[in-house]
């Protein structure tokens, strides 16, 4: 690979890792701060992706939209819609125990995937939505850079917003609920509400991550939100980085994405007959990696500071 190729690769790498960082930060609100399980990240990610895809792509006869709106509108709408879906979900599931919440969120993601796959009028079904605009700015040089800049801005925005929330009385209430749920149930109504707020707040960033993903690739289809690849990877990122610690969430995203990308370099060296199995081998390695992290460093690289 020549220098230009390497640089491009580095930009792409950082952009993608940054998108995951936004999602991991969202999960860090739900899980790290509020202690709520969400195994349905892919669902909220998909809501964000499709929202911006429908709003910002050019009009097509076969489905609703596109509306050719500016990307910024798409990003904001993605956050809002993802938050609304989370509100509806959370309103129903807020009271569930952790293990039931895990199953319920898997179910939510599964339902969202079914809708995306089957409702052609909305999502174009399995064919997916092409032609999602990518960022371009002639004054700034080639577009990979500006996409990276946009993602970086989103990471900083998410980090700042979540840090501020964490330091506020609202954040302290979340911690108190998480640490001592039984003692805190005295004010049961407020607790249910606080938990719902955290769930919605976190989901907004998952939607934002999904929207950024759509604009990075310019094409989305239900394949991309298939069974739990993204959900699982984000969980690994947060746990490895240190759940409860926002810097940890970002660090974890980059480290795990580096490992994930590194395994691709590894699997590229496999004999030809195994190359189409590379994806499975990489998933297997990630599945094992999480066991190693849970056994040897359950608190993550940057443990939570209480």
């Amino acid at each position: 690979m020549d220098m230009g190729g390497l640089l491009n690769y580095a930009i792409f790498f950082a952009t993608f890792a940054g998108i995951f960082a936004v999602v991991a930060l969202g999960l860090n609100v739900q899980w790290g701060l509020s202690g709520q399980f969400n195994f349905g990240i892919a669902g909220f990610f998909a809501v964000g992706s499709y929202t911006t895809a429908i709003l910002t792509s050019e009009p097509v006869a076969t489905r609703i939209g596109g509306f050719d709106l500016p990307i910024v509108v798409g990003l904001i709408a993605a956050m809002i819609l993802s938050a609304l879906v989370a509100w509806a979900v959370g309103w129903v599931t807020a009271g569930l125990r952790t293990d039931y919440l895990a199953i319920a969120t898997i179910g939510v993601a599964e339902c969202i995937r079914l809708i995306v796959k089957n409702e052609d009028w909305l999502t174009n079904g399995v064919r997916g939505i092409p032609g999602i605009p990518r960022l371009a700015a002639d004054w700034f040089g080639p577009s990979p850079w500006i996409m990276l800049l946009l993602v970086a801005a989103c990471v900083i925005f998410a980090y700042a917003a979540i840090e501020a929330a964490r330091a506020s009385p609202w954040g302290r209430l979340q911690l108190a609920i998480r640490e001592n749920e039984r003692g805190a149930t005295a004010a049961g109504k407020n607790i249910a509400r606080a938990r719902l707020e955290a769930f919605v707040f976190g989901a907004a960033f998952m939607g934002l991550g999904g929207a950024l993903y759509a604009h990075l690739f310019g094409f989305i289809s239900p394949e991309a939100f298939g069974p739990n690849f993204s959900t699982f990877l984000v969980w690994v990122m947060l746990i490895a980085g240190g759940s409860g610690n926002n810097k940890g969430a970002i660090l974890g995203s980059f480290v795990i994405w580096l490992i994930w990308s590194g395994t691709e370099i590894l699997t590229n060296r496999l004999p030809v007959e195994y190359v189409n199995q590379a994806g499975a081998l990489r998933l297997l390695l990630i599945g094992l990696l999480v066991q190693v992290v849970l056994i040897y460093r359950p608190q993550g690289l940057l443990p939570e500071k209480l």
Partner: peptide
Amino acid sequence: QARPVVLLISSFGIALVLRSAVQL
């Protein structure tokens, strides 16, 4: 001895391992 959520996450990982092993 860990919190039960650790087992949830671990088994989610094992699900992936089994699925990938089958595919491999």
